Simulated scan of single mutants.
Amino acid sequence: MARMHTRRRGSSGSDKPAADEPPEWSDVDADKIESRVVELAEQGYDPSQIGLKLRDEGVTGTPVPDIKLATGKKVTEILEEHDATADVPEDLRNLMERAIRLRRHAERHPQDYQNKRSLQNTESKVRRLVTYYRGDEIDADFTYSYDAAVSLLEE
């Protein structure tokens, strides 16, 4: 599939190996994994960072290669059960932070036309995601603007 704002196609990546159960060397209890996920979320980590942290460090020193195989739930499902989800979804938050950085750069460097184009593309992606999440994850009357993004991310 082609990229959204260019004519190039993406490079193919590797697939995860198909497995039905966690490996034998990773025998961590599912309750311990869930408590560690909630603990990391309270420390301010995003769901993708939590997965990487558990993969690298583990719960009690034993790495957890796949949280969904070990617990039967995704990281976001665990966070929803324990009411530890963020106000804004992770992908939307990252795009908004990028748009804010690009806007501040454009104010300092008005002749940077590549930055202006990148800002337009990023804000377009943000608007698409806002319409996707509107009503479920964010307010039904939320519309993206620079000021709204700054106030939303400062909270």
Rank of each mutant, 00 (worst) to 15 (best):
D141A: 11
V75T: 07
V37P: 00
T60Q: 04
S145T: 13
T143P: 02
I67W: 01
E24V: 15
I33Q: 00
I100G: 05
F142R: 01
D91K: 14
L52G: 11
M96L: 07
E77H: 07
D27C: 09
L119V: 01
S118L: 14
Y133I: 06
R101N: 12
S124F: 10
N121A: 07
Q114W: 00
T122Q: 02
G58Y: 11
A70R: 00
P22A: 02
S48Q: 14
N115A: 15
R127C: 06
R55C: 02
Q114S: 10
V59W: 03
E80F: 08
G72E: 03
P47V: 01
D91R: 13
L102D: 07
E107T: 08
T143M: 01
D46M: 07
S26F: 01
P110I: 10
R93S: 14
E97Q: 09
A70G: 03
D46P: 01
Q120F: 11
S26Y: 06
P110V: 02
R101W: 09
A140D: 13
D87L: 07
G58Q: 09
E90N: 07
N115F: 07
P110E: 05
N115Y: 05
D27I: 04
Y133F: 14
E42S: 11
S35N: 10
R127S: 09
Y45T: 09
K68L: 08
A18T: 08
L129V: 05
A149G: 10
N115C: 15
T143C: 04
N121K: 03
E123F: 05
L54V: 01
P22Y: 03
W25H: 09
T76D: 06
